[in-house]
Design a protein around this nucleic acid. Structure first.
Ligand SMILES: [Zn+2]
Ligand SMILES: [Zn+2]
Ligand SMILES: [Zn+2]
Ligand SMILES: [Zn+2]
Lengths: 151, 151
DNA sequence: GGCGGAACCGTTATATTATAACATAACATT
DNA sequence: AATGTTATGTTATAATATAACGGTTCCGCC
């Protein structure tokens, strides 16, 4: 959604390509694939996938963008800087919207769960799929006996 | 066409290709990419990626195998059949081991978290990365800059 | 000023992962 | 047998991601 949050000031140490990619992702506000990013930045001079992937790598390492593994897409972080490298996303099956949620201590609880199994957690991803509020209401009102296959 | 044995613990209605893929994944016990599966099943007559992907799609829909999004790989389920649940995996950065953990109600808590944000959760994935017990001990006891992938 | 290194850049080619499209085979139901 | 349905085999292609190479810019330093 446009204008839901004042975007944090651009990081100082970003290079030109990194700034272009981050700016695009923040403007669009929804997940974009690397090649979609490339297409939209051709007018700015980007021409090859490697340029986009390099910028994305850096931005992801800085925590400014996140990769959505279940979609092979990238989205700008909507929270500030996170301390941990675990994100929680909810993804709408119908409209494709992605929303990053503030972890409510769940990642710490999951890390404890893993530790009981002998694992040391260094990072991770939580991607939940389903229906966003609007699409859920639409699906409920349009066809009451709708059935959706599992994950 | 040769005398095939009745699959004893295997699921009821699996077709030949589905059985081959599931059997392989259960035997191997670790994540395999679709093309690795294909290579290992060429001797059984499989020749094209679509055959493997079709079998994997069915097996995943039945909950007998899971897809590891962060690795683009597939692994046999080590728990029974789960309902419509969310899976929790822990993946070792060093040896590649994947272990499926029993969710301790965390997925329900995450679904509640999502619902508070207006989202209806229909499924999802939790993939945590880090070090398994053995690799964690090795990394702790040896020098921190040691790197030696096992055979 | 010249020099070395580091980071970034642009480009080409290639690898890896996944699906589309279509024709056939197998099987059950009538 | 005719039919509908599902699974299969096959080819080709799409979509995603990285390797490899050389050039440029910048900065600290001798
Ligand atoms: Zn974030
Ligand atoms: Zn939606
Ligand atoms: Zn499972
Ligand atoms: Zn390990």
């Amino acid at each position: 959604m446009a204008g839901s949050e004042p975007p944090p000031p651009l990081s100082p140490a970003l290079t030109r390509n990194q700034g272009l990619v981050l700016d695009l992702l923040r403007t669009v506000g929804e997940p974009l694939g690397a090649y979609a990013i490339l297409d939209r930045l051709r007018s700015q001079g980007l021409r090859a996938p490697a340029q986009v992937y390099r910028a994305l790598d850096r931005l992801a390492a800085l925590g400014l963008v996140h990769r959505l593994e279940t979609r092979n897409a990238f989205v700008a972080c909507t929270r500030g800087a996170h301390p941990p490298q675990v994100t929680v996303f909810v993804l709408c099956d119908r409209c494709g919207a992605a929303r990053e949620l503030a972890d409510d201590g769940h990642t710490a609880a999951l890390a404890a769960l893993a530790r009981r199994a002998g694992f040391q957690v260094l990072g991770g991803r939580i991607e939940l799929r389903g229906l966003c509020g609007r699409c859920g209401r639409m699906a409920a009102s349009e066809s009451p006996d709708d059935e959706d296959p599992g994950p």
